Computed example of a mutant assay.
Amino acid sequence: MSTLALPLHARRGPSPLPGFGLSLGLGMAWLGVVVLLPLAALAVHAAGLGAEGWLRAIKDERVQASIKLSFGASLAAALVALVVGALVAWVLVRYRFPGRRLLDALVDLPFALPTAVAGIALTAIYAGNGWVGRITEPLGLKVAYTPVGIVVALVFVGLPFAVRTVQPVLEALGREQEEAAASLGASRLTTLRRVVLPELAPALLTGFSLAFARALGEFGSVIFIAGNLPYRTEIAPLLITIRLEESNIPGAVAIAALLLGMSFVCLLVINAVPLLFAHERRKQGRG
């Protein structure tokens, strides 16, 4: 029987790197212990509350205020990070200028910087006596200890996700399609809308989802600049900690389960977006 008639997996020889089974087992075991087991414990505790207990904890006015603030600030921060991150990625890919490598390295600074340090630094800058706060507050724009400050902190931690998801797509895109569109008489706006943005759409949506998920669970960089005033600047992750300190385990579990569910939704969106765009492209190619 010819080897060409065999299935692909049958034609492949043994792997040059032995130990796949052992590596897979150890990897899944560590993943289960570090990630899946804590999440499963949270899901079990949340299920133990029952629908009535979970709704009772969520309907608390203080909880609702913190959840609305967390979701609203995360959404606003993700949108700002998406726009600014796309612009930064465009500059890094399309232009060459002194300090470009330094700027590229600074994009990853929020990944390496402890979030508490970031929160203290942002508070020092935007407080009333800070470098920026002493200018903005006399103009009526107070940043520190307001929801605006929370958005600023969340943009700080979410910006790298937007940049790093768009940047490789721009590098792979090149300029050939733009030059072809320009040779056909397309304006810059038309080229951006009809050529560049469709190619960047999956990366933009992925960057937005990552920035939103990161902002939704952010804690360290927010609690310093927020002021943590109940019903005004108290975020949901902080309220989880407060409920635990009050020995209100059901209340903490209910809020944590809600944030966990939203994180799973973001994860599904991140994984589904490339598949949807690939399916649409296949349909267009067949058409």
Results as ranks from 00 to 15, higher is better:
residue 164 R to W: 13
residue 112 A to D: 10
residue 28 M to R: 07
residue 180 A to I: 13
residue 79 L to N: 01
residue 156 F to R: 05
residue 221 S to K: 08
residue 31 L to Q: 06
residue 12 R to W: 09
residue 173 L to G: 08
residue 199 E to Q: 15
residue 29 A to C: 09
residue 225 I to S: 06
residue 212 F to I: 00
residue 264 F to M: 14
residue 254 A to C: 09
residue 212 F to S: 00
residue 184 L to A: 12
residue 233 T to W: 00
residue 168 P to G: 12
residue 285 G to Y: 09
residue 2 S to F: 13
residue 53 G to A: 08
residue 271 N to K: 10
residue 178 E to Q: 12
residue 118 A to W: 10
residue 31 L to F: 11
residue 260 L to K: 00
residue 5 A to T: 10
residue 201 A to W: 09
residue 20 F to W: 08
residue 240 I to E: 00
residue 4 L to I: 12
residue 233 T to V: 02
residue 199 E to V: 14
residue 162 A to G: 07
residue 224 F to T: 15
residue 164 R to A: 11
residue 229 L to K: 13
residue 14 P to L: 02
residue 80 V to T: 09
residue 184 L to F: 12
residue 236 A to V: 07
residue 177 Q to C: 07
residue 206 T to Q: 12
residue 48 G to M: 04
residue 273 V to N: 08
residue 128 G to F: 12
residue 267 L to K: 04
residue 150 I to H: 02
residue 6 L to R: 10
residue 265 V to C: 03
residue 91 V to I: 14
residue 55 L to Q: 15
residue 153 A to V: 11
residue 6 L to A: 09
residue 51 A to C: 02
residue 78 A to R: 00
residue 178 E to R: 09
residue 270 I to T: 06
residue 129 N to M: 05
residue 246 E to L: 13
residue 116 A to S: 10
residue 133 G to C: 02
residue 119 G to L: 06
residue 254 A to R: 10
residue 115 T to K: 09
residue 82 L to N: 00
residue 103 L to C: 15
residue 81 A to P: 06
residue 138 P to Y: 07
residue 167 Q to E: 12
residue 139 L to S: 15
residue 39 L to Q: 10
residue 242 I to V: 15
residue 10 A to F: 03
residue 226 A to T: 06
residue 113 L to A: 15
residue 228 N to Q: 12
residue 97 F to R: 11
residue 196 V to Y: 08
residue 5 A to K: 10
residue 217 G to H: 05
residue 141 L to F: 14
residue 101 R to M: 13
residue 191 T to R: 14
residue 8 L to Q: 14
residue 133 G to L: 03
residue 40 A to R: 06
residue 120 I to L: 15
residue 181 A to L: 11
residue 279 H to D: 12
residue 44 V to F: 01
